[in-house]
Amino acid sequence: MENLKDGDFTAQAESILQRYPREQRFALAMMQDFQKEYDYLPREAIRRIAGYLEVPPGKIYSLATFYKAISMEKKGKYIIKVCDGTACHIRSSTWIIEEIGKLLGIKPGGTSADGRFSLETVKCLGTCALAPVMVINDEYFGSLTVGKVKKILQRYGGRADEE
């Protein structure tokens, strides 16, 4: 159970579960609430949800793996979401993703070894006018170029100078 302190986790988990009636249709919402709290879905949460709904944990687990909104991996302090929606794709988002990957040594879906950065791709942030775009936590960066990316990551103390 990694670094979740047991007592705290139990109290937190209870408060999330109690928001919902004991009906299967709320399973996804519960998982999303856990994820909001911890940035990912801890395995222990799956057990608790299953216990609360009185269904086998496997059932909750299969939902968690089906829905992309749910991540069972712990994420970095800075979550970089690079848009690869169509508008961004045709304005060369591929190179942006590749450059970030190179600079941080991670692939989309991965988290850097020091636990600081996670790299994700998303489909359309609704800001196609700024394509290609990325968001780091809540901050938007538009009209990206490979050169710009390096400078932006430096601001976050990224491994921007790896030669």
């Binding site: 009906e23 299967q24 249709r25 709320f26 399973a27 996804l28 919402a29 999303q32 299969s62 939902l63 089906f66 829905y67 992309k68 909104a69 749910i70």
Partner: peptide
């Protein structure tokens, strides 16, 4: 309001309904 789960196929009507029911979409 039901929050989606981030699966494209859930925009399809029958998958969407399965998802609201709390099943795999």
């Amino acid at each position: 309001v039901v929050r989606g789960g981030g699966a494209f196929v859930c925009g399809e009507s029958s998958a969407l309904m399965a998802s609201i029911e709390g099943r795999v979409g």
